[in-house]
Design a protein around this nucleic acid. Structure first.
Lengths: 260, 260
DNA sequence: CCCGATCATTCAGTAATACCGAATACTTTC
DNA sequence: GAAAGTATTCGGTATTACTGAATGATCGGG
């Protein structure tokens, strides 16, 4: 990927923006940023000043600290209106939402995690996933769908990392997760059985853009009891059919979703 | 603002990201970017390569073109979970949404326009505003609320620009808009009477963080007939009370919303 | 109210960087 | 299979962005 040498100031600029996420702080001073990234104070200032003048950072006049700017929202908005996958998958999400009145997600791989790129909320209960949020692969339905079809070397790397435990039911053991991924491949869908949040379950399916190539994953999430009922009413088969339809319509790729 | 000289490569990097929005293209080649920004081809390549390795751009392997990356979604997600205004205003939006079952927005000034920073959808009809999208001030309720309280010099600059006509009812005349802004200040609320989209109306109020200082604006939008009915049932007063409550709770600033 | 401490901001010199143009590799088209 | 149009690499160099010290602003304590 990063074949040619990267431009230092751009890397540093985004490191500054990332720092807010990493430290979980909504305001940072020049000093804090400089120290956090081991930069000279005036170097940091130059970067911050540039980012501020571009609207990526904003200064709170009362305490001189900086926070993330609205320009970033605006850029994300463009992503959502331009990304081919997000755009073309959205109507299918709406359709699933109408069928079950549960929260429906679409997620794409991003590095060693997954990013929720689109969401249609249920009418009743709101699930607090954020569009754009980066999530682990091992504890989400969409994550398992994507992980299951990654090349072995990538899988190994991700599995060898520490897997955070979120609930009593999170799979944090590499061996166990491998079995789970095997099952995902055999059955053609993944579940999240209260593995990220107690009381919340989800069913997810991979969307293929080619053989063994997963473009994204879609899922239906909600209260565990409700999801169980939905599964009894054919949720899994419905998701598989939807995924196959997306593969066909959007990616011009056909496969048999094996509805057994 | 831009007091110190900006760092060139960072400006250029964001100019590249902006280019996708400006040209309305979801894919751009190195050549297109270089020409669009009058950069040397290999300079552009260096910038693009860096942005790609950071996840801000992604390359489509089939045609080598680049598109906006998911990293931008992730950054925006952080903005939404960290921005004090967005966070603290959200529950009030929910409350308004529950009362009228109409779409509720919160917008903040960004340069000479406004950015919708939060939205709660109506159950029935979905309005196609994008969180993060930049909008004109002259044809939106929230825009007029914000414009009405800007310092005269800023107002003049914005009013002197060309105002795009969106519908039969859009105010595109500076004199007429000044009258409208006067009314907004006197009445304490603004309306959008099918000025951006036919059939769609909205009522908006400014949220003050200090005397003559508008932090953001909130609005309730929907089909014109429904909004009219809501107004008859006290929508305006409700919005004013909500705005005053936000000013008090969030910004520790009290004023009399003059409910007459 | 003044003094000292802390931090943001400016400035000027310089080492290092990113920029440029040319050369090369790759793709597509005829 | 050649040619045209791109993307990508490379090396020298002018420009740039980095650094450290100086200045300005702000806050708290005496």
């Amino acid at each position: 990927m990063a074949t040619t040498k990267n431009i230092q100031s751009i890397e540093r600029a985004f490191a500054i923006l990332d720092l807010f996420q990493q430290l979980g702080k909504n305001e940072l001073s020049v000093k804090e940023i400089a120290e956090g990234l081991h930069l000279n104070k005036s170097t940091a200032f130059g970067l911050i000043n540039t980012l501020a003048s571009l609207g990526c950072l904003e200064q709170d006049r009362s305490n001189q600290k900086y926070m993330l700017g609205l320009k970033l929202l605006s850029l994300a908005s463009t992503v959502q209106t331009q990304n081919v996958i997000i755009l073309s998958v959205h109507p299918y999400l709406e359709q699933l939402n109408h069928m079950y009145d549960e929260t429906v997600h679409c997620a794409i791989r991003n590095g060693d995690g997954v990013v929720y790129v689109d969401k249609v909320d249920a009418g009743s209960i709101h699930i607090s996933t954020q569009i754009g949020s980066q999530n682990d692969m091992h504890c989400t339905g969409v994550g398992k769908c994507i992980l299951a079809y990654l090349p072995p070397s990538t899988q190994d790397r991700i599995l060898s990392k520490h897997m955070r435990s979120m609930t009593y039911n999170t799979i944090t053991n590499a061996l166990q997760l491998r079995e789970e991924l095997d099952r995902v491949r055999r059955q053609g869908y993944a579940t999240d059985n209260e593995e990220i949040s107690v009381g919340l379950s989800c069913v997810a399916v991979p969307v293929f853009s080619g053989p063994e190539t997963v473009a994204c994953a879609i899922s239906v999430s909600g209260m565990t009891v409700r999801i169980r009922t939905a599964v009894e009413h054919g949720l899994v088969e419905n998701l598989k059919r939807t995924a196959a339809a997306i593969s066909h319509e959007v990616f011009d790729y056909d496969y048999d979703p094996r509805l057994d």
